[in-house]
Design a protein around this nucleic acid. Structure first.
Length: 831
RNA sequence: GCGAGAGUGGCGGAACCUGGCAGACGCGCCGGACUUAGGAUCCGGUGGCCGAAAGGCCGUGGGAGUUCGAAUCUCCCCUCUCGCACCA
C-alpha cells in the first residue's frame, strides 16, 4: 500500500485531510503476525554470531488474570531497551516466562471451584496473547512456566544440590504463621507483623520447617554490593538494612541464683560499666526457670502468656516500657556487680541472643525502662581521646557524681574505646568481639498445594533422604484436596505420601511441604539460557554466554527476590555451576501505577485494565502514554495522566501528526533545510544518550520536537525525507507498530525497521554554524546576537560592545570587568 | 528514631550530571478556523504583575554562602515521599 497525503498549503490548515490517517487497528495486528512468522525477536545461540550479546531480562509475571497497567509499564520499558539494543546491532536475548506457582492460584481456585492448574494456565494464555498484542519483542521459543514439571524438576534438583552442600536443612523453630492463608511465611514476607499477601496479623507457631542457609552468605551479599554500581541506590540501601550487620561484642553474664551463663550482644561494650539491670525476651528459654527460682513465676507467666497469644503486630507498638522482675539477679562480669533481672517485650528473641544488658544512660529504650521501673541511670563511658585502662573502669561508676539524669547521655561512642574494651573482654575470657546480622535463614517450606514438592523422603532408619535425581520430578498430584487445613494438603494424599526409602527400600514417607515460590524465581533467568536442556537446570557455558545485561522490574522486589537470586547465584557459583557471583549487572526499577494518589484495588473499584484501552487506541499509544508520562522509576498516577479514561491520549495525537508529516515528506522529496538536518543529528545523539540512561520520557519529547521541526520545514516548502527516516527508526523502540508501518509502507523499505541499524550520529552535521551570543550586564541578559560558531573572543567582545541594548543598560556606569566565553557569552560587570 | 530521595506554572514534567536566555515536550485551559455537531482535525495564545504595544519588574520551599553570574555547587532550616524500625 502506497500512502499519499494531499498537501494543503497556503490556507490555515496543513495536512488537513491526509488520505492515510494513522489507524492502529489496521496496522498493529498485521505487523504482529509478520514479526511472529519471521521470528524477528529470536536470540541467536550460534557461537559464530559476531554480534555482541545483550540479555534484556524482565521480571517474569505472576499470572493473576489478564495484564494490568503495571505490567504494561514495566514491559514497555524493558522492551524499549531490548529493541534499542537490537537496532544497535546486538544479538539480544529477551525471554518471557511465568512465575506460575503460588498462593493466589489456590485461593482463586477455591473461590471458583476450579483446579489451580486450570486457573493458572488459562491466565497464562490470556497474558501471552496480550503480550503479543502489545508488540513486545520476546523470544517465545524460550518460554517457561515455573509450574511445569519440566521446570520444577530442576527446582527440585537445585534444592537437592543445596541440600548436598549443607545449605538446606530442617529444624523446629518458631515460625511466622498466617492464620488466613494457613501457611508459614519467610521473615521477608512479614510486613509490619502482617502477612504480605493478605494483610492478616501473623502469629508465632513452633513448626519443623525447611530453611536455606542464606546467613552463611550474609557477608558476601553485603561485600559484593560494592560491585553493583549500576543498581538504584535505594535498592542497595534496602538490602544493606535488611542484612543489618552490627559490630560489637558478646559478653557472658552469670545468673547469681542458678549459675546459668547468659550471653548478650552489644554494640557498646564501652558502656558495660553502666549496666544497672538485665532483660530477657519473653520467649527466652531461661525465663520460665528463672521466674520459678525467683518466685515471680505467676507474674512472668502471665506476661509471657499474654504476649504469646497476642498477634505480633500488636506487640511492636507496645509503647509502654512494661516488664516484670524475675526476682533473680545477674552478675556483671566486668565489675562483679549484681543487678536485677527482668522479662520485657521490648527485647526481641529473634535478634542477637534474646537478652540485653540494660544501660539506661546510653540507650533511649533502656532509659525509658529504667524510668518506668525506678532503676539507676548511671553514666559511665570511656571518654573519647582519654582511653583509660579498662581494668580501672570498675572505679568509674561514681564519676562526677552523675548518677541520675533526666535523659540519656548523648556522648559520642568512641571506636577506639569500643575496640579496646572488646579486646580486653576477650583477654579476660568474658566474651569477645562479635558481628551480628539481622538477616535470618530463609524459611522455604509452605503448607500449601500449588508449589514444587520438596524432594525429600523421610525414613525411620535413614532420616531425610534425597529423592534420587533420576526420579525427579516429584510430581505434584492433580487429585488433591487443596483446601488449607493447617497441614500440607499433600499430607492427605496417601498415594503421594507412601513411598519407599531409596537407601533401604523400606516403607517411608515423602515430605509433604512445597517450596516457597521465591525458590522458583531465584534461578529462572539461568533456565532461559538453556531452554529444553535435559541433563541439568542449565549449561554453564550458556549462562556464561548470556550474563544478564539489564534487569527490569518493580522495586517491590528490592529485598525478597533480588536477595534470594543473589544468594542462589553465589551458592551455584560455589557449586561450580555459574561462572560469576552476581546475577544482574544493571537494574532498572519502574514505578508503580496508582490511581488518585493511592493503589488501585477491587474494593475501591478503580482498577483500570490496559487491554481495553489497547483495543481502543492501539498498543503503541498505550506504550507511549506510559513511557512519556513521567520518569520511568517514578509512580504514575493514572488519574492525572488519563483523566476520566475516555480521552484520546496525547501521544495518539502525536502519532497522527508523525504519519502526516512522514507521508508528506515522502510525497514531496526536495532539499532538506540544514536546520532540520542539524536537529535530526542532535536528536539522534540525545535520544541515544537518553535511552542509555532510561530517560524514556525525555527521549520521546525530543522525537516530538523533531516532528514539529519537520512540519515547519515542510510548511516552508523544504524536504524532510532524512528526518523522516531517522524518526521512524528512533520511534521503533517506543511505538514498534507505527514505526514499522512508516518504515515499510510509507518510506518504502523492504525489510523490517527492527533489522535496520540505529541511525548514526554525525557530529559534523549536528554542529551549529551560528550560535546565539548572550550579552549580559551584571549577570542580566540584555541582548542576544546570532554569530558564526567560530567567532573568536575579540570579535565577540567587539559585537557585544556595539550592542545598543547593552549600552543602554550600562548607561553611565563604569565597566570594571568583561567576562568573555566566546562565542556564547559576554558579561559586562559595572560599578 | 535510622537510612535514602525529592520540593520548578492549573497538571505530568524539562533544564541540575557539565553554573550562563527557567518553564522544553505534552496535558489542560482560552481564542479562532472548519463544522448540523464535536469528545474529530487544523491555527494561535497560555508563569505572575504593570503596559495598547514596545518593553519593564518579579519568579524554581525558606535562609545564608561561593561566583561576574545559582533551579543547578556548599552549609543550615522547613516540608513531603519512600524504605527499615523497641535491631541491643
Amino acid at each position: 500500500m502506497r500512502v499519499s497525503v494531499r498537501p494543503v498549503y497556503g490556507g490555515e490548515a496543513r495536512y488537513h485531510d491526509p488520505m492515510h490517517r494513522y489507524d492502529p487497528a489496521a496496522i498493529e495486528p498485521k505487523w504482529q503476525q509478520v514479526w511472529e512468522e519471521q521470528e524477528l525477536s529470536r536470540a541467536s545461540d550460534d557461537p559464530e554470531d559476531p554480534r555482541p550479546r545483550f540479555y534484556a531480562l524482565d521480571m517474569f509475571p505472576y499470572p493473576s488474570g489478564d495484564l494490568h497497567l503495571g505490567h504494561a509499564e514495566a514491559f514497555s520499558g524493558g522492551d524499549v531497551i531490548a529493541r534499542f539494543r537490537w537496532l544497535q546491532g546486538y544479538n539480544v536475548l529477551h525471554p518471557i516466562g511465568w512465575d506460575s506457582f503460588g498462593l493466589p492460584a489456590e485461593n482463586a481456585a477455591i473461590k471458583r471451584g476450579v483446579h489451580p492448574k486450570e486457573w493458572t494456565y488459562e491466565n497464562i494464555e490470556q497474558q501471552a496473547a496480550s503480550f503479543k498484542r502489545m508488540g513486545f519483542s520476546f523470544d517465545w521459543t524460550r518460554r517457561l512456566h515455573s509450574s511445569d514439571p519440566e521446570y520444577y524438576r530442576w527446582t527440585q534438583w537445585l534444592f537437592l544440590k543445596l541440600f548436598e552442600m549443607g545449605l538446606a536443612y530442617r529444624k523446629n523453630a518458631p515460625a511466622n504463621w498466617c492464620p488466613n492463608d494457613q501457611t508459614v511465611l519467610a521473615n521477608e514476607q512479614v510486613i509490619n507483623g502482617a502477612c504480605e499477601r493478605c494483610g492478616t496479623a501473623v502469629v508465632r507457631k513452633d513448626l519443623t520447617q525447611w530453611f536455606f542457609k542464606i546467613t552463611d552468605y550474609a557477608q558476601r551479599l553485603l561485600d559484593d554490593m560494592d560491585t553493583l554500581e549500576e543498581w538504584p541506590e535505594r535498592v542497595i540501601t534496602m538490602q544493606r538494612n535488611w542484612i543489618g550487620r552490627s559490630e560489637g561484642a558478646t559478653v557472658r553474664f552469670t545468673v547469681e541464683e542458678t549459675g546459668d551463663e547468659v550471653e548478650v550482644f552489644t554494640t557498646r561494650p564501652d558502656t558495660l560499666w553502666g549496666v544497672t539491670f538485665f532483660v530477657f525476651a519473653p520467649e527466652h528459654p531461661l525465663v520460665e526457670k528463672l521466674a520459678g527460682v525467683g518466685g515471680a513465676a505467676d507474674a512472668a507467666r502471665a506476661l509471657v502468656d499474654r504476649l504469646q497469644s497476642t498477634p505480633l503486630t500488636n506487640r511492636e507498638q507496645a509503647e509502654s516500657r512494661e516488664g516484670v522482675p524475675l526476682g533473680v539477679h545477674i552478675v556483671n562480669p566486668v565489675n562483679g556487680e549484681r543487678v536485677p533481672v527482668f522479662v520485657a517485650p521490648y527485647v526481641l528473641m529473634e535478634y542477637g541472643t534474646g537478652a540485653v544488658m540494660g544501660v539506661p544512660a546510653h540507650d533511649q529504650r533502656d532509659f525509658e525502662f529504667a524510668r518506668e521501673h525506678d532503676l539507676e541511670v548511671r553514666v559511665v563511658i570511656q571518654p573519647p581521646g582519654e582511653e583509660r585502662d579498662p581494668a580501672s573502669m570498675t572505679e568509674a561508676h561514681d564519676h562526677e557524681g552523675v548518677m541520675v539524669r533526666s535523659g540519656p547521655f548523648d556522648g559520642e561512642p568512641s571506636p577506639i574505646s569500643i575496640a579496646k574494651v572488646s579486646a580486653w573482654i576477650e583477654e579476660q575470657g568474658l566474651g569477645g568481639p562479635a558481628v551480628t546480622y539481622r538477616l535470618r535463614d530463609w524459611l522455604i517450606s509452605r503448607q500449601r498445594y500449588w508449589g514444587a514438592p520438596i524432594p525429600i523422603i523421610h525414613c525411620d532408619e535413614h532420616g531425610e533422604v534425597p529423592v534420587p535425581l533420576a526420579d525427579l520430578p516429584v510430581r505434584l498430584p492433580d487429585d488433591v484436596d487443596f483446601r488449607p487445613g493447617g497441614e500440607s494438603p499433600l499430607a492427605r494424599h496417601d498415594r503421594f505420601v507412601k513411598t519407599t526409602c531409596p537407601t533401604c527400600g523400606r516403607d517411608a514417607r515423602r515430605d509433604t511441604d512445597t517450596m516457597d515460590t521465591f525458590v522458583d524465581s531465584s534461578w529462572y533467568f539461568f533456565r532461559y539460557c538453556s531452554p529444553g536442556f535435559e541433563d541439568g537446570p542449565f549449561r554453564r557455558e550458556d549462562v556464561e554466554r548470556w550474563p544478564v545485561s539489564q534487569y527490569t522490574g518493580g522495586v517491590e522486589h528490592a529485598i525478597l527476590h533480588l536477595m534470594y537470586a543473589r544468594f542462589f547465584t553465589k551458592a551455584l557459583h560455589d557449586a561450580g555451576m555459574v561462572p560469576f557471583v552476581e546475577p544482574f549487572a544493571r537494574m532498572m526499577n519502574q514505578g508503580q501505577v496508582i490511581y488518585g494518589g493511592g493503589s488501585m484495588s477491587k474494593s475501591k473499584g478503580n482498577i483500570v485494565e490496559p487491554m481495553p484501552l489497547v483495543e481502543r487506541w492501539g498498543a503503541d499509544s498505550m506504550r507511549l502514554t506510559m513511557l512519556f508520562a513521567n520518569p520511568f522509576e517514578d509512580d504514575i498516577d493514572w488519574k492525572l495522566i488519563a483523566g476520566d479514561a475516555d480521552h484520546r491520549p496525547g501521544v495518539h495525537h502525536w502519532l497522527g501528526r508523525v504519519f502526516a508529516a512522514v507521508g508528506e515528506a515522502v510525497e514531496r522529496g526536495g532539499d532538506e533545510p540544514t536546520t532540520l538536518v542539524r536537529l535530526t543529528h542532535r536528536t539522534i545523539a540525545g535520544v541515544t544518550d537518553d535511552l542509555e540512561r532510561f530517560r524514556f520520557n525525555v527521549a520521546i519529547s525530543k522525537l516530538m520536537v523533531l516532528t514539529n521541526e519537520m512540519r515547519t520545514a515542510l510548511d516552508a516548502g523544504g524536504g524532510a525525507r532524512g528526518a523522516a527516516e531517522a524518526l521512524a527508526q528512533m520511534l521503533a523502540p517506543f511505538a514498534p507498530f507505527a514505526a514499522e508501518e512508516l518504515w515499510r509502507e510509507v518510506l518504502g523499505h523492504e525489510d523490517s525497521v527492527h533489522v535496520s541499524r540505529w541511525p548514526s550520529f554525525d557530529p559534523a552535521l549536528a554542529a551549529e554554524d551560528t550560535v546565539t551570543l548572550v550579552v549580559q550586564v551584571d549577570g542580566k541578559v540584555r541582548d542576544t546576537i546570532e554569530v558564526p560558531a567560530d567567532t573568536n573572543e575579540a570579535r565577540v567582545l567587539e559585537l557585544a560592545r556595539a550592542s545598543e541594548n547593552a549600552l543602554r543598560a550600562i548607561a553611565d556606569r563604569e565597566i570594571v570587568k568583561e567576562i568573555v566565553r566566546a562565542p556564547k557569552l559576554v558579561n559586562f560587570v559595572t560599578r
